[in-house]
């Protein structure tokens, strides 16, 4: 498997150095530095308000930031980096589709923002429909879809143009267990197709299952990072009392003194 290879030999698809973002007085992201290498799934784990969405929005040049540098495929990311943006796919926390457009037309519209050739786009839209399992629902309007199906449509709209780097911001919030399972499987499929993925969540089980590497955020700062095993090892080393194998929640509790999902 790709992600098992030695990551230092690889190109860093995304590099964030010393990113700092304040909303007026409040620090939302505080001197954040990390890199993501090709084919990797990076998990950004943290409770609500820890700065995950703000980090993603800064990387995508949707937000101005006070300090730091962001490079994607080795190039600086700016609002006008349209060549870079062509290789990026984003799935935001909230479902963002047109109420008046059918499932197919929604995917077609967002894909059309990247791909102008009609025949090429048609093939990609079909592929995306298949990936998220919405082929049967192509003619449905968003309001006729259940919450889980809507989430899948939201994902299809973000990845139909087959991006090399994908950002998913809490795609499973308020989703029923079956749909969540399906979404996680979809993300694995995307990874298997060669995409590099940045995934945010406040559910540790998801991140544990999905991600090659995890960064734990709190108050806009990295409080720990590494593979799941490394993070668990960290807790074992610090806490002798631990008898049963620790979970990521224990890691979080150990480092901050409070529960992850509060």
């Amino acid at each position: 498997m790709k992600h098992k290879k030695n990551s230092t030999a690889k190109l860093n698809v995304l590099e964030v150095t010393h990113l700092t973002k304040n909303y007026r007085e409040q620090k939302a992201v505080d001197d954040l530095s990390f890199a993501v290498s090709e084919g990797e799934i990076l998990g950004l784990l943290g409770p609500n308000g820890s700065g995950k969405s703000t980090t993603i929005n800064c990387i995508l040049a949707l937000l101005k930031y006070q300090q730091g540098e962001i490079r994607i495929f080795g190039e600086p990311m700016t609002p006008a980096s349209y060549d870079l943006k062509r290789k990026i796919g984003v799935i935001f926390q909230e479902v963002a589709v047109f109420d008046e457009l059918s499932v197919y037309d929604n995917i077609d519209f967002f894909c059309g923002l990247y791909i102008t050739d009609a025949a090429e786009r048609k093939a990609k839209v079909e592929k995306a429909l298949q990936l998220v399992g919405l082929t049967k629902y192509r003619k449905y309007l968003p309001k006729q879809l259940s919450g889980g199906l809507l989430r899948r449509l939201n994902i299809a709209c973000g990845i139909a143009h087959e991006p090399e780097l994908i950002f998913l911001d809490e795609p499973t919030v308020a989703v029923d267990p079956q749909s969540r399972r399906r979404i996680l499987d979809n993300i694995k499929k995307l990874r298997d197709q060669g995409a590099t993925i940045v995934y945010t969540s406040h559910y540790m089980e998801e991140v544990e299952e999905l991600c090659d590497r995890i960064i734990i955020l709190d108050h806009g700062k990295i409080i720990a990072s590494g593979t799941t095993a490394e993070l668990k090892q960290l807790v074992k080393d610090r806490s002798v009392k631990q008898v049963v194998g620790p979970t990521l929640n224990d890691v979080f509790l150990e480092l901050t003194g409070r529960e992850l999902r509060d």
Binding site: L62, Y82, K85, R86, F92, F110, L113, Y114
Partner: peptide, 9 residues
Amino acid sequence: RRIMVSSTS
């Protein structure tokens, strides 16, 4: 936001 992150200005 989706339009803004896309490769169409």
